[in-house]
Structure formats: structure tokens, C-alpha cells
Simulated scan of single mutants.
Amino acid sequence: MRLDKYLKISRLVKRRTLAKEIADKGRIDINGRTAKSSTDVQVGDQITIHYGDKTVAVEVLQVLENVKKDAAADLYKNLD
């Protein structure tokens, strides 16, 4: 699954277009490497998002196409 879509479905980022902008500016790393919005996300990947002075680090637990709002937090585990 594409990075921008995963961030939207997991609700780590509110909108897919915002996720695309953040990734294209080089503010998202997957497994320590800068990722573009089209980068493929797989189970076990570690995603780090840099929002200004805030950093969010998560590990991908599941990759699902459709997720209900209540189950979105089950897709990842916080590493902070």
C-alpha cells in the first residue's frame, strides 16, 4: 500500500493530500530512509513523521485497505 494512503487509513494524518505533501517535502522516514508518498508500506516497517518540532514514530502492525474508525489504532504501535 502507498505511504500516503496508509497514513490516511491509519489516521496518523488527517487527509491523504496532506500526507502526500509531508512525504514529498522529505519529512517522513521509513526504516531510516526518506520516503516519498508512493513508497510501499509493509508490516514491520518503522515510520517516523517529523511535524515541525514534533516527531511521531510508529511500527506498522497491519496493512488493510478498509478500516473502521475504531480499528485504525490497531494498524500501528507507537515507538515513542
Rank of each mutant, 00 (worst) to 15 (best):
L7C: 07
L7Q: 01
A71F: 10
K14H: 10
I49Q: 03
A23S: 14
S10K: 00
K68P: 14
V58T: 07
H50N: 11
V56W: 00
K14S: 10
E21G: 05
A23M: 05
G32C: 09
M1H: 01
D74S: 13
L61I: 09
G32Q: 07
V67D: 11
Y76T: 08
A19N: 01
T17V: 10
G52S: 06
T39R: 07
D4W: 00
K5Q: 13
R11Y: 08
N78Q: 13
T34Y: 06
V56P: 01
D4H: 06
L79G: 15
Y6K: 03
T34S: 09
L3A: 03
Q62T: 13
A73M: 11
I22S: 02
L18D: 11
A71H: 13
L64E: 15
A19S: 11
L18I: 10
K20Q: 08
I9M: 04
L64P: 06
E65N: 15
K36E: 07
T48S: 14
K36V: 05
G26Q: 05
L61D: 10
E59K: 15
V58E: 05
D45P: 02
S38G: 04
L75D: 06
V58A: 03
L75C: 04
I28A: 00
V67T: 07
G26K: 03
Y76Q: 02
R2N: 12
A35V: 00
R2V: 11
Y6N: 00
Q42T: 15
K8F: 14
V43P: 06
G44S: 07
D4Y: 03
T48Y: 02
G26Y: 00
Q62P: 05
V56E: 11
I47T: 02
K20W: 03
A35L: 01
T34E: 05
E65I: 05
R16C: 07
S38R: 08
S37E: 08
Y51E: 12
L64C: 13
R11K: 15
K36W: 04
K5T: 14
L61V: 15
V60R: 00
A71C: 10
L61T: 15
K77Q: 15
A19W: 00
Q46F: 06
L7N: 00
D45Y: 02
A19D: 02
V13I: 15
L75N: 00
H50C: 08
D70R: 13
T55N: 09
A72T: 12
Y51M: 13
K8Y: 14
K25Y: 05
Y51G: 07
A19C: 06
N31S: 11
I28Q: 01
K77M: 11
K68F: 13
S38D: 11
K54F: 08
G44L: 01
K8D: 12
M1N: 09
R11D: 07
K54H: 06
L79C: 14
I47H: 02
T55R: 11
N66P: 12
I28K: 02
S10P: 03
T55I: 12
V41F: 02
K5D: 08
G26E: 09
V56M: 06
K5S: 14
E21D: 12
A71I: 04
Q62D: 13
Q46Y: 10
V60E: 02
V63H: 07
